[in-house]
């Protein structure tokens, strides 16, 4: 009996190690997407400059949760702020846009992030919500790198996602069924893509649903017949962004307005922010926040 107990606890330990390893691996890859080493170096002199002194007078905790696109920016700022004043504790969690709004509305966190504007029914439930848009991110359709189709028209895009075009040959690709991937109901990314790229058209009910930008990238990067969509900031070599009406989906094109499928990234607070929360938001919204936002892969808003 004791031998049995011993072996099963050993197994659990091994499984835990495996999970920790996996987390570590994903952590590395997200670091690759976000702040690369040299970029972090260029950000450093600014981070150590006097603007961080505004945090010197504060103590205590600041909890942040919600939109996953925000995390690279939030974590980089939080790390530098905590380094400048080591009595501060700033936590950054994910969960998605819906979770961010819910948690700040319920008073569980001080800042709730969302990759979309607060909805009418959310404002009804939490009338005190105040929103701060600090960055712009593009959302692009993505396909497998082996897929010869790298650009479609707006009509083709809408027809593909509506399930009217079902074979890649119809849009100039290799013959084969189109596998449509979409995001879950709480996705801010989906809402933007649906509104702006699909003109609020149907998404075919047969579309496979994945629950995060990361899962989308995994699914599309492994299936040569797949099409999905994700935030431009998260695109790397494993998938290819599809040009929409002749415009290549890059942050530069999103910035100059030629690529239209974009969204704002918001920080939300319950009531006007005060104290540490206000200082944190002011820092990101001001000139000091720009390098952090750019390093995160987004376009700052002034």
């Amino acid at each position: 009996m004791s031998a049995r107990f011993h072996s099963s606890s050993l197994m659990i330990l091994m499984a835990l190690l495996l999970v920790v390893g996996l987390l570590g691996a994903t952590g590395c890859s997200s670091a690759d997407e976000g702040v690369s080493a040299e970029e972090a170096e260029t950000a450093e002199p600014i981070a150590e400059a006097s603007p961080l002194d505004v945090f010197a007078e504060f103590e205590g905790e600041l909890d942040i949760a919600g939109g996953t696109a925000h995390i690279p920016v939030m974590e980089a700022v939080a790390a530098d702020v905590m380094e400048s004043n080591d009595v501060l504790l700033i936590t950054v969690a994910g969960g998605g846009s819906g979770v961010g709004v819910q948690q700040v509305g319920e008073g569980l966190v001080e800042i709730g992030n969302a990759g979309r504007a607060v909805k009418g029914e959310e404002l009804e439930a939490y009338p005190g919500l105040v929103s701060f848009a600090f960055a712009v991110d593009g959302v692009a359709a993505v396909v497998h790198p082996d897929n010869p189709v790298t650009e479609v028209t707006a009509e083709q895009m809408q027809a593909i996602f509506a399930g009217e075009i079902t074979d890649w040959a119809e849009v100039g690709g290799n013959a084969g069924e189109i596998h449509v991937f979409t995001r879950d109901e709480s996705s801010g990314t989906r809402e933007v893509f649906w509104e702006k790229a699909l003109a609020e058209g149907d998404i075919v009910v047969e579309a496979n649903v994945v629950a995060s930008n990361g899962a989308m990238k995994t699914a599309v990067s492994e299936d040569a017949q797949a099409i999905g969509f994700m935030g431009i900031g998260g695109i790397d070599d494993s998938v290819v962004g599809v040009s929409y009406d002749g415009v290549v989906p890059t942050q530069d094109n999103a910035k100059d307005g030629s690529y239209m499928v974009t969204r704002k990234l918001y920080m939300n607070t319950l009531g006007e922010p005060e104290g540490l929360t206000k200082a944190f938001i002011d820092f990101i919204m001001g000139a000091e926040g720009v390098p952090y936002i750019v390093d995160g892969g987004y376009i700052p808003i002034f």
Partner: peptide, 22 residues
């Protein structure tokens, strides 16, 4: 064929808007 089960449905929708039919 692809399907959706109740548990996964809860997991995906729980984070959506407060209130409302979803």
């Amino acid at each position: 064929g692809s399907i959706r089960v109740l548990t996964a449905h809860i997991g995906m929708v729980l984070a959506t808007a407060v209130g409302g039919p979803a």
